[in-house]
Design a protein around this nucleic acid. Structure first.
Lengths: 228, 228
DNA sequence: GCAAAAGTGTTTTGCGTACACCCATGC
DNA sequence: GCATGGGTGTACGCAAAACACTTTTGC
């Protein structure tokens, strides 16, 4: 930037040194879908306060790093996955949310296909947890998880985001089961199919399920939206 | 906190000193409604880069201050109003959004009744601007304003937030005009009335408009919701 | 042939939308 | 009496919701 600044970053920092004692982090609610259950990727907390408890994947934001980039970095580092869906949800800034000091965190949720990165998780403290079984988490992470789920619920019938959780080809039963585990309630099969087909999100791949102990269903893939 | 910390704030800061060079601010999109127009409270920018341009009201977050408290403080300090509606919208963390250095900002929107604090604005650089006339703002504040408006639009037919913008008693025409200026489009009067009455948000105060050059309309007040 | 899930249609109901006329008041 | 906005009702279309039977496959 060529022009002189009335207030340079240096001056700002001198005037307001205390303000720079706030650390900024990102926390990722990484969701997957497996065995007809919505799952979230958690890590064992490394803080004594939260020993034995699970927490979301997060990290401090670097000074030369965009906020979105920071969450993407956390995701890539921990899962090895690239090109994943990521969306900012909310920023949590309560005073004592982190026992080690003032840390404000911005929560993102991410939707990944579990099968794609199964191998990456073998040798560390990361595990998939069924969302419906989670009773508590370290820090305020349960609150963060719930906020992310609420935002996801508001969105799934409007925007085709959930396809990020599924393999390329999937049956309508899988899709319905996914919706049900996100919404937390059963839906009528016929009405669900009508609604989904109305959205024009799906493309018939002319294949059938394999190795199911019943009549196989047709497989579909997500149709990339043509409008812009 | 009685227990020892595996990582104290001091250790964290030593390990990660560069991370503490990120400043955190809040920016408030303070909205009001006057002369049938949605307005936003803006202040002349004090940065040379943005000389002559208008910006949202914001401030750095203090280390001992909750994020929500910070936005509330900005609001009270600038408008003198208390008990106002305030809602977090989004956090903007692009690298070069602030010319003075790395400042991540969390945006809040606030809905106030302009009449209530008219007197507080007389002697400073604050002015109400008609939202529909705003072409540009300092920093990324136009983007922030638009994000807040989008969130408000999504919400107004679901939650009775807009009543914060109106005086205690108002006519249905005022209410409709408010909805129209937020949504940016006209609506049918009969359908609007039906929809609003269905919400059961309103209470008839058995009074009529005064000093209108036409048939006076009935006045209503917002009914506090009984269900928690 | 039995179990298990796939696939399919109709009816009802509520909501959004489009649309026109008479009424009350100020001037 | 005229201008201005207040107040009201009906008809249509679509989408959501409720609901049951036949078909296909594996075993």
């Amino acid at each position: 930037m060529a022009t002189a600044l009335q207030k340079t970053i240096r001056a700002l920092r001198a005037e307001n040194s205390e303000f720079f004692q706030i650390a900024l982090s990102v926390d990722c609610v990484i969701l997957g879908f497996e065995d007809n259950e919505l799952k979230v990727l958690l890590i064992k907390s490394d803080l004594e306060e939260y020993e034995g408890q699970w927490s979301l994947l997060g990290d401090l934001v670097r000074v030369d790093e965009d906020l979105d980039e920071a969450s993407y970095r956390v995701l890539v580092d921990r899962t090895g996955l690239e090109n994943v869906y990521l969306e900012q949800v909310y920023t949590f800034g309560q005073l004592n949310r982190h026992p080690a000091g003032r840390v404000v965190t911005t929560a993102y949720f991410s939707l990944v296909n579990i099968r794609d990165h199964e191998l990456q998780l073998s040798n560390n403290e990361l595990h998939w947890h069924s969302v419906k079984d989670i009773q508590s988490l370290a820090f305020d992470h349960l609150q963060i998880l719930n906020k992310c789920l609420a935002q996801l619920r508001e969105k799934i019938y409007e925007h085709p985001v959930v396809f990020n959780l599924l393999p390329e080809k999937f049956s309508l039963r899988e899709l319905q089961s996914l919706f049900e585990s996100i919404m937390g309630q059963k839906v009528d099969r016929r009405n669900f199919r009508k609604k989904i087909f109305l959205m024009k999100w799906l493309e018939d791949v002319n294949e059938l399920e394999q190795d199911v102990p019943h009549r196989p269903g047709k497989l579909y893939r997500f149709k990339e939206e043509e409008q812009h």
